[in-house]
Amino acid sequence: MKSLTPLPAKPSYLERYILIRDKKHKKTRAPLTLAHALIEARYKAYALAVKQDDLVSLKANDDTLKISDLLRACYDVATQPLKDMKKAIKEIQPKRQLKYCPMCGTTLPKTFDHYMPAVRFPEFAVHPHNLVPCCSRCNSTKDDDWLNTKGERQYFHAYADTIPDVQFVEVALVENPVTKRVGAKFNLQRPAGLKDHKWRLIDSHFSRLKLIELYDEHGNDEVAEILADCFTHLESGGGNARTFLTGRASDRTRTYGRNHWVVVLLTALSQHPNLDQWIQNQ
């Protein structure tokens, strides 16, 4: 897991909204133009909340809710400026980072999640910082449920949150003595010194999206593919398999972070005493 790169401040996020707004039909555009000062104030409030790491302080606004349908139409009915902005969000990310959904790390991010739910915060429907590329599974699971009953955030904000650069996803590798297949069992482990609120967010994000179960579901097949790659590497005259896996893990860590489930698998396999035997069993 690794944070995403937000769009630069120029053109400003408000200017991007204006470009989208002004492409709407007059029936939608005119009342939104009249509400410009309100939207500008809300964009400033969002920027301040992000700066202060206090998104939960943002409350739904009665005045924007009155024009919710008009604001949400800016997103629901695509215009060229909106398409351009979505494209820009994806293109500014480092190469390969969006090979995986930034929320789960398992599949392609083919949709966008409104981190601040559009049903309560329609003024941020086309706010670049509020549009997170993700997969449909994560999008539908998170839905509008961004806070728990205590008013705490339940999911990482892919732009605003810095993922702690410490290990918290771990895996145990176990060989089935009958089939000779190697299985993977993931778990979360709280690192020493990690602050309570950071850990609660990590634990909640993984729990709500059922990520450990998802990694367990994919883990066995991924182990088999990694071992097959090692076998091919050695058969073609490649060097030490542990060095090969360590290199792949380092490369993926730079792109996806140390806690990406495939990185965790690569690292665990490279360090396991039975690696050579497992490769020969392929």
Rank of each mutant, 00 (worst) to 15 (best):
S3L: 09
T5R: 15
L7A: 03
A9T: 09
L14Y: 14
R16Y: 13
H25F: 12
K26D: 13
R29F: 14
T33H: 12
A37Y: 12
L38T: 09
I39L: 12
Y43G: 03
Y46M: 07
Y46D: 00
K51M: 14
K59R: 14
I67D: 04
R72Y: 09
V77C: 12
I92M: 05
Q97K: 15
T107I: 07
D113T: 03
Y115K: 07
H127I: 01
P128F: 03
H129P: 00
N130K: 05
L131W: 04
C135I: 03
C135R: 01
C138T: 00
S140Y: 14
S140C: 12
T141C: 08
K142P: 01
L147K: 09
N148Q: 07
K150V: 04
D165M: 11
Q167C: 05
F168M: 04
V169W: 00
V171K: 02
L173A: 11
P177R: 12
V178Q: 10
V182S: 04
G183Q: 08
G183M: 05
N187R: 15
L188Y: 05
Q189W: 03
Q189F: 06
Q189G: 05
R190T: 10
I202C: 04
I202A: 03
S204M: 05
L211C: 04
I212F: 02
E213P: 01
E213H: 10
H218C: 11
N220W: 08
A224C: 09
I226V: 08
L227Q: 02
F231P: 00
H233W: 15
H233Y: 15
S236L: 12
G238I: 10
N240S: 15
D251F: 07
T255R: 12
G257K: 03
L266C: 02
L266T: 00
H272K: 12
Q277T: 07
